[in-house]
């Protein structure tokens, strides 16, 4: 045993405090490095995109090349907006949610209830594998199933099916994890009152985990909002606002891709990206808030 340490505790404490400070410094530097990309991205988007964002950006559809070229040569702001993209995104995400949320929550409840059964394990594994399927492959599948066979052409329905398949595993897992956090005693309290099983799920388990379920849904939605690849093969894009499930539809990420391919519309890339990024960030912050509230 080092008697010195006991005889002279202050010297030891000083070196400990020094080490502590060095460690803290390293952590701060590494954290700054970690968050710097998002700060750089957002600041770049704001600097380059904010000029285009005005009322008509949200109320008008995307301009054609000629309009953009004229505006550019006159040194004006490119006219038009991304209304067709915004409506298309909302339309398809809504349809995808209607398909994925009920199914996902039901499967999540099933996995929670039958967690140890072999059949449940298979389903859980499949859902994990689904999360890893490249989104372009899902686009191809939806193209084969829907575009080729059901709508006989590119359609919003095909787009939302591919997005729904992406959402499904996320919702299944978040539902199962949320339900697992409810104490077993709450469930037993329900059974001890003689309540039938489906009432306990509907009136006890789901309300108790509602904020967790909403968080999972919002995160799944923000995950699919920016998906481009599957939509290119399914929804294709459209210059007009469309609310028909069997017609081609635009989406914000699709518009960004189109703007990128048109040298006259480069400015619109930044404003559309800024919009998309803001949308996703807002959803993320809301879901974080909800998640924090339940703790």
């Amino acid at each position: 045993m080092n008697l010195n340490v006991i005889a002279n505790p202050t010297g030891n404490i000083k070196s400990r405090i020094r080490k502590d400070k060095i460690y803290l410094g390293i952590i701060i530097v590494l954290s700054l490095i970690t968050i710097s990309p998002i700060i750089l991205i957002i600041s770049k988007l704001i600097i380059k995109g904010i000029r285009q964002i005005n009322l008509s950006f949200f109320t008008e559809t995307a301009p054609d090349t000629l309009e953009a070229m004229t505006a550019l040569s006159n040194n004006e702001i490119i006219p038009g907006g991304i209304l067709n993209g915004i409506t298309g995104t909302i339309f398809m995400v809504l349809m995808a949610s209607l398909m994925a949320i009920p199914v996902g929550i039901l499967i999540g409840i099933f996995l929670y209830e039958k967690g140890e059964k072999r059949y449940a394990n298979i389903i859980r594994d499949i859902s994990d594998i689904m999360q890893g399927i490249p989104s372009i492959v899902l686009g191809l599948i939806a193209y084969l199933w829907i575009v080729k066979n059901i709508t006989n052409g590119f359609s919003a329905l095909a787009g939302s099916v591919s997005l729904a398949i992406m959402m499904l595993p996320l919702i299944i897992r978040s539902t199962e994890e949320t339900l697992k956090m409810i104490p077993q005693t709450i469930k037993e309290a329900g059974f001890a009152l003689g309540a039938p099983y489906h009432k306990i799920i509907l009136k006890v388990l789901i309300p108790s985990s509602l904020s967790g379920l909403i968080t999972g849904i919002l995160l799944a939605i923000s995950r699919i909002l920016g998906e481009t690849a599957p939509l290119m093969l399914t929804a294709l894009g459209s210059p007009v606002v469309n609310f028909y499930a069997d017609k081609p539809t635009s989406a914000v990420p699709l518009l960004i891709w189109e703007f990128y391919n048109d040298p006259n519309m480069v400015d619109l890339i930044w404003s559309s990206s800024l919009f998309l990024m803001g949308f996703v960030l807002t959803l993320n912050i809301i879901s974080k808030r909800i998640a924090a509230k339940r703790k």
Partner: peptide, 16 residues
């Protein structure tokens, strides 16, 4: 279970 009520070790009112 309607004829035999039960109270648990820890208080477990339904949280919602």
């Amino acid at each position: 279970r309607r004829k035999i009520g039960m109270v648990f070790q820890r208080p477990n009112p339904f949280p919602t």
